[in-house]
Write a protein that binds this DNA or RNA. Structure first.
Lengths: 151, 151
DNA sequence: TGGCGATAGTTGCTTTTGTCAACAATAGAA
DNA sequence: TTCTATTGTTGACAAAAGCAACTATCGCCA
């Protein structure tokens, strides 16, 4: 891999984070912060339902997370229910209001993508999606990311 | 653009930010924070910089930026020299130590990319780079990003 | 079975990061 | 000149994040 290749990849990375940067805007026009939105997403869609799972998935400090959850619970977006099997743990789940909020976030994220692709023809859009697939299929997962913070 | 397309694009976005996430790690194994590293990059590589330009480029609060610059100057990584034409402004430039630090950051970023692609054949790598090019060429720049914070 | 290290979550405290407003100095246009 | 806008600095503050100590519970195993 030569330095020209690397240069091109870094250029793409700058482009991507500056121009697309999708995830960082999920929460736009809601009262939620980015992390709170990601929390709702994880709990509501990916079935992470205890704090420790969220700590691992989102790499947050557990103290910080505990407070975030308290806040979201106070806002009526989620609830903690005692886990019957493990009395240390609490099962997290969205309330109806939480599901509404998540649906809103998803709608906004979708709209954002639609706006980004609005000037493209169907063909161009398909080409971009195919290109994304190529990248996903090929690039290796960074091992440092897979096993983080091991003592 | 149908919802299946959108789903795929959002999946790519998650993949990208979770797996690649290059820029967020420029500063690894240095004493710099991410923002400081980005500052060095801007000043060192994009030439002729004043604080106001950085404020626009990196979208930072000018008070915050002022303090960041003070800190980097205190660490001997950059210097402020009075601008002859505009006596309000100060021209920012890297010191020798700043250039060294920047070179180190660049080396780390390059290494990171090399690690990410280490298992790919030359052909696969070229395919990924081509795919990146396709995305860059097609996706529109988000207008909200181009004219930020206008009063 | 009971003792003990590991784990889930909470809380207090601190640091880091970022925002806002007020301000001085200078620029540039009317 | 005078008035408004711009550049950068500073103080005060708020929000975000991290660290460490602590409680309660778990699950292993001697």
């Amino acid at each position: 891999m030569n330095s020209q290749d690397i240069h091109q990849i870094r250029a793409f990375d700058r482009f991507y984070t500056q121009t697309l940067h999708l995830t960082d805007k999920y929460h736009l026009q809601t009262t939620l912060t980015l992390v709170e939105a990601r929390l709702l997403l994880e709990i509501g869609e990916n079935g992470r339902n205890t704090a420790i799972q969220l700590v691992q998935e989102l790499r947050l400090d557990k103290g910080y997370l505990s407070r975030l959850i308290t806040r979201l619970e106070a806002n009526g977006l989620l609830q903690r229910t005692p886990d019957e099997r493990d009395k240390r743990a609490k099962v997290l789940s969205l309330t109806a209001a939480g599901r509404d909020q998540l649906a809103l976030i998803n709608r906004r994220a979708d709209d954002q993508i639609r706006r980004l692709f609005v000037d493209l023809t169907t063909e161009e859009t398909q080409r971009v999606i195919a290109a994304m697939q190529v990248i996903e299929d090929h690039v290796a997962v960074d091992p440092q990311l897979k096993t983080p913070n091991q003592p």
